[in-house]
């Protein structure tokens, strides 16, 4: 288990008979209490198909039922019940091509870690631009890995901080808007394949902004979740 931020943990799972997954897919985690009470939530897979472990990155929601258990209670060696991998719409593999524009709000970055690792592991030549929005640098997940990924000539990483930024911050500040999407992404003429993941309001803003900039809605794929952190 790797602590990403005070509220976000990455959990590595050893799964018997894992059928393999596509980058961007998710799994449903089901918990069962001793009295038979069951509850289930979906989590994006954070690891690439090529990685040895299947890992999930989970943000703890204070009013959640499953995420506080996964972040605070789960210990190495515990077993959990999974369904998946599921979802084919928000998946990317090299054959789908690009250029790729990935837009992440808060822990919406999770499926993109899988896609970017897959991009590197498969030796893809598709150019990628990633825009991440986080409240602060401390709350940005995968910081070290993003710096390493950005060293690849084919991968551009942009970060915008919405609440607070260090004095010497050289990235972007403020919430995403058409201007930022235009600066950090591709032009509509380049016909990018775009994936947007984050809380509902973030996804709506990003998708509407790109459509307003002339992007083909048919090449914009979205995934919304109930979390926070943008």
């Amino acid at each position: 288990m790797t602590v990403e931020t005070p509220r976000v943990t990455t959990i590595a799972l050893a799964i018997r008979d894992w059928p393999g997954h596509r980058a961007g897919q998710h799994v449903d985690v089901r918990l069962t209490a001793p009295d038979g009470y069951q509850t289930e939530r979906s989590y994006s897979i954070a690891s690439a198909p090529e990685d040895a472990d299947v890992s999930l990155t989970v943000e703890r929601l204070d009013d959640g039922e499953v995420s506080p258990y996964l972040v605070d209670e789960l210990r190495p060696g515990d077993e959990i019940e999974l369904r998946g991998p599921v979802g084919g719409y928000f998946a990317w593999d090299n054959e789908l091509g690009g250029p790729l524009f990935l837009v992440a709000g808060g822990s919406g970055l999770v499926p993109f870690r899988s896609m970017l690792r897959h991009h590197r592991a498969s030796g893809s030549r598709v150019p990628v631009r990633l825009l991440c929005s986080a409240r602060s640098l401390e709350l940005l997940i995968y910081r070290e890995e993003l710096i390493k990924l950005a060293a690849d000539d084919l991968v551009d990483v942009s970060v915008t901080l919405t609440r607070e930024a260090p004095d010497d911050w050289r990235g972007y500040r403020g919430r995403i808007d058409p201007a930022l999407l235009s600066t950090t992404g591709w032009s509509a003429k380049e016909e990018p394949l775009t994936y947007i993941c984050g809380p509902t309001a973030f996804v709506e803003t990003a998708a509407a902004g790109l459509v307003a900039l002339g992007h083909d809605p048919g090449r914009i794929r979205t995934e919304r979740f109930g979390g926070t952190g943008v």
């Binding site: 799994v27 809380p199 509902t200 979205t222 919304r224 979740f225 109930g226």
Partner: peptide, 11 residues
Amino acid sequence: MHPLDGNAMAG
């Protein structure tokens, strides 16, 4: 309240 999307029905 904000709706999710059809990805949530995948499972």
